[in-house]
Simulated assay, not measured.
Amino acid sequence: MEEVRRAQEIGDPSSPARQPRTRILHVTFNMGFGGTEQVIRQLVNNLDPNRFECEIACIDGEVGAIGKEIEAKNGIKVHSRQRGSGLDWKIILWLRKLIKHRHLDIVHCHQYSPFTYGWFAHWGTGAKVVFTEHGRFHPDRYRKKARFINPIIAHTTKTLVAISHATRDALAEYEYMPRYKIDVIYNGIDPLTVIDDEHRHFLSTNLGLQQGELIIGTVARLDPVKNHALILQATRALIDKGYKVRLLLVGDGPERENLEVLAEDLKLGSAAIFAGFQTQAADFLSLMDIFLLPSFTEGTSMTLLEAMSLGIPTVATRVGGTPEIVVDGETGVLIESDDLTALTNGIQILIDNSDQRRSMALRAKARFHDNFSAKKMVERYQQSYEST
């Protein structure tokens, strides 16, 4: 193993020997589009290459678009195998073989199911386990098995990470993991840049946007937990009050047909634009004046961070990790969950007060750079790996 590591050291062979790099295996469901996948991408792309080397293992048999991009651009190995129903011991043995044959030091498991597989697989290999909980399902629930199994798993796991204090609290309450052992590391991204005027004009023309319209919207999978229906209802209420707004929904998912029917029932017509899935969704985000996030639950929303990096104020529900990101009255407006009146009023406040909207935009951008950049997140994980 030592010979393998020395062969991987970087630099002139005649120079003093460097410390061998820490080899990390990120275990996840797949590497498609999503917040977890974006965190993994930031880590494998930005960890110090002189100190760390990464590989990825997908247990759902699909590498996904982000995984393919990482493999093509960075040469990072992405392994994939389809798990069966129940607890698939073949996946455990497959991961164990990877850990041993690839001489891996750390198994970084993202989400609970990959954590279970990675935890079983690491035994007897000498590797250490890091677990990151990226968010919770809604509604959260107690599980009898968790009460007995999770304290043991947590005790024998080197490092536990939650992406927000709210997520940490949920791990302690619903998963029976010791709160004192859970570190909080906020998600981070590279800041987005505003699209140029030519590209903005091109997108606006294709979407049928007009001068003088105020664009509200969101970028998210069309899933019930995101509560897009409330946005459609708020748009109808704003139009009925005489506001000239257009709603831009970027994303696709199982709720699309239901939402399109609702938009038709509300007689929104061209006021509601379903842009569908976009590989360059951030370009569409740049068109929005107000970002909306009325989800029933959130961990640390990556699209919320993207909106903040662009200086877009937000109206969002006071759930999960969102209140740790949005400062109510300073970088956006926080409302209670599933409250149509509150969402409508929150948007209306920002429409009516352009100075306040601009002030919130500047503060949102500053708060992003102070707390939620990819650089800060990667630094925290590097420290965590080195103490593992």
Rank of each mutant, 00 (worst) to 15 (best):
Y174D: 07
E2C: 05
E324D: 08
F29T: 15
V245S: 01
L334M: 05
K226Y: 10
S113H: 09
G276K: 11
G84V: 01
L268W: 11
F296S: 13
V225D: 11
Y381A: 09
R143N: 13
M302K: 13
Q38H: 05
M31P: 02
I99D: 13
G188W: 11
T235Q: 03
E62R: 15
H79K: 08
D60N: 14
I99C: 07
S387D: 08
E173V: 04
L192V: 02
G332M: 11
V44P: 05
P294N: 12
V333W: 09
V44F: 00
I231H: 04
F33D: 10
Y142T: 07
S373K: 12
E71V: 03
D48R: 05
L47Q: 05
R168A: 14
R256W: 11
K244Q: 12
R6D: 15
T300C: 12
D355C: 01
A57S: 11
L304R: 04
K158Y: 05
G346N: 06
I10C: 09
T314P: 11
Q382W: 03
K181W: 07
H228W: 03
I325Y: 03
V326H: 09
E53D: 12
L87G: 10
Q19I: 09
P294F: 07
I10L: 15
Y186S: 15
H165P: 07
K144D: 15
R256V: 12
I335Y: 02
E198S: 04
R41N: 13
L262Y: 00
M302L: 11
G124P: 11
A170F: 02
K90D: 15
E306L: 00
L305E: 09
S14D: 14
L262V: 03
H122M: 10
A146H: 14
V63K: 14
R367Y: 02
N187I: 06
V315F: 06
I59D: 12
D370V: 00
H108R: 05
K375H: 14
F52S: 08
C109K: 10
R23L: 03
E9L: 06
L310N: 02
A374P: 10
L203V: 04
T36G: 13
E379N: 10
P13K: 05
T322G: 08
A271P: 01
R200Q: 08
M360S: 10
I92V: 15
V63W: 01
H138G: 00
W119I: 01
V261G: 00
I325F: 08
A220K: 09
V44A: 00
H110I: 01
Q19R: 12
A154W: 04
L310P: 04
G188T: 13
L171D: 09
Q211E: 13
G299C: 12
P224H: 03
I99N: 07
K376T: 04
K128C: 01
S301V: 08
V63C: 03
M31S: 02
G32P: 01
R141S: 11
I106G: 06
Q280T: 14
E336L: 03
A364D: 08
M302N: 14
I273L: 11
V63N: 09
M302V: 15
L304F: 03
L287Y: 06
P323M: 07
E379S: 10
G217I: 00
D223M: 01
G86A: 04
L343Y: 02
G11I: 02
F296H: 14
S373L: 06
G320K: 08
Q211R: 11
Q278E: 12
